[in-house]
Simulated scan of single mutants.
Amino acid sequence: MRGRTIAPRFGRFYPLGLLSGIPGVFRANATPFRVTGIEKAALTADWNHPLAGRNLTLGIEILDAAPKDTDTGGRVTDWTEFLLSGGPGMQARSQGEPTDFTEPDALQRDDPDDDAQFYAEPRLVGHIDRQASACLGEEYARLVKPGHEVLDLMSSVESHLPDTHGSNVTGLGLNAQEMAQNPALNRHVVHDLNTNPTIPFADSSFDLLLCSMSVEYLTRPREVVGEMIRVLRPGGLVAISFSNRWFPPKTTYLWTDLHPFERLGLVADYLLQGPQCTALQTVTYRNWWRPPEDRYSGTLTQADPIFLATARKPG
Score class of each variant (00 low, 15 high):
101 F>N: 01
103 E>P: 06
103 E>N: 09
105 D>M: 06
108 Q>P: 05
110 D>L: 09
112 P>F: 02
112 P>H: 10
114 D>Y: 01
115 D>R: 13
115 D>A: 01
115 D>G: 00
115 D>I: 00
116 A>N: 15
116 A>F: 11
117 Q>W: 11
117 Q>T: 12
117 Q>D: 15
118 F>C: 00
118 F>H: 12
119 Y>Q: 04
123 R>A: 01
124 L>R: 06
125 V>W: 08
126 G>K: 15
127 H>D: 10
130 R>L: 03
132 A>C: 07
133 S>W: 13
137 G>E: 14
138 E>V: 01
139 E>Y: 13
144 V>K: 07
145 K>H: 08
147 G>E: 13
147 G>V: 07
148 H>W: 13
148 H>T: 08
149 E>P: 07
150 V>Y: 07
152 D>E: 12
153 L>W: 08
156 S>L: 00
157 V>N: 09
159 S>L: 01
168 N>C: 04
171 G>D: 05
174 L>V: 03
176 A>D: 15
177 Q>K: 15
178 E>G: 02
178 E>C: 02
179 M>I: 05
181 Q>G: 06
181 Q>R: 15
181 Q>H: 12
181 Q>F: 03
182 N>W: 12
182 N>E: 07
183 P>R: 07
184 A>H: 13
186 N>Y: 08
186 N>G: 13
190 V>F: 04
192 D>G: 03
193 L>N: 07
194 N>T: 03
197 P>A: 04
197 P>M: 06
198 T>F: 09
199 I>W: 07
200 P>I: 00
203 D>E: 15
205 S>L: 07
209 L>I: 04
209 L>Y: 04
212 S>A: 13
214 S>Q: 10
